[in-house]
Design a protein around this nucleic acid. Sequence first.
DNA 1: TGAGAATTTAACTAATCAGTTTAACTTTAT
DNA 2: ATAAAGTTAAACTGATTAGTTAAATTCTCA
Lengths: 202, 202
Amino acid sequence: MANQTEITILQIARKHFVQNGFAGARMQEIADEAGINKAMLHYYFRSKEKLYHAIVIETLGQIIPKLAAALKQEGSLWERIERVVNTYIDTLVDNPDIPFFIMSELSQKRERFVLELKQRAQYFPAIKGLLMQITQEIQAGNIKPIPPLHLILNIMGMTIFPFMAKPVFCTILDFPEQDFGELMEERKVVIVEFLKSALRVD
Amino acid sequence: MANQTEITILQIARKHFVQNGFAGARMQEIADEAGINKAMLHYYFRSKEKLYHAIVIETLGQIIPKLAAALKQEGSLWERIERVVNTYIDTLVDNPDIPFFIMSELSQKRERFVLELKQRAQYFPAIKGLLMQITQEIQAGNIKPIPPLHLILNIMGMTIFPFMAKPVFCTILDFPEQDFGELMEERKVVIVEFLKSALRVD
DNA sequence: TGAGAATTTAACTAATCAGTTTAACTTTAT
DNA sequence: ATAAAGTTAAACTGATTAGTTAAATTCTCA
């Protein structure tokens, strides 16, 4: 179906944009690898710029709704944190080039990307809800005091960063790349336990 | 002096390569902004590829020796961790485009970059020393057991990730970008306290 | 002072690539 | 069946850009 073709194109094109940058990606090569020709590629997406933008939309669509769902569901602070960590890790194990694409967006089209984020502000209350829940738990004396923004940065950093650092990490520490997915699975437990230990009250 | 000119060119060129990718960066624009002309730019660096490579060398030189020094110095595990965290944060506050440049390297020239890292293997024993020290402290019962690789990922993630996520973080959480440096200064303390709390034994 | 290095300007080249066009062929739905 | 939409191949265009060259000017320092 056309729809399936479009999805294939978007996936392959994202790989090319990540590997070569916007200016370095070749419409001809994207078409070749997608099994269509250049005319068709323009027929579907009109221009390189519009193709790129379609990928931005697609990529945000792959992660923001899942994350918002994980945050919106009822549950204790720990259940929520666990869902967020698991959602990130599952998504990034399946789509390891997402962080690289977003970083290149932030490098090259920061303003436009931030605008795209703001248009999805509907999803953000979920994150602010998490912030509020952290504040409440601190006030109730259930977790150790910590500035909530720092806690959020800690959680996201521990969860997302390893996917970005994979090649450097594996090189410097002689860690085999094929075992990396397994290590990330371990992290689902390790991170939550680490957080619980860091935040438990005396 | 020629040397100062070269350093200026490298700084400006890195900015252009980050903002536009390798293929998208323009030798003419780099020359213009560096206050020289295109002929001079080629006179200094011979080609775009060699200029790019010079930036890789320069960038690695800005971070690896500092980090190795922070790790090599004598001291307790906590003194070392504190030095590493402070070194990263200071370097990244001063050079916020380094993470973006390295990510683009990892996206576009992963193999070559990994090779470049391996050539600096002399610096890595310092990191393995940290790993060993963690293992020893666990065995001595001074800190809570945790797989050392995960602990390293936690430290690096909490420290480095915020610099990568800055625009997303500030947008989603309505945090003013001009206060970001201050927040990172806070993190020097917050991260170490968080680690101590997470690793303290009952 | 004088030679060699550093720097500028401007024009040139060879190659590349996004996007268009045309003309033919195939599939799909009515 | 037939019209419309989907698809292909190939050639073309217009624009851009890395790298070169040559001729002139300025700087450096021995």
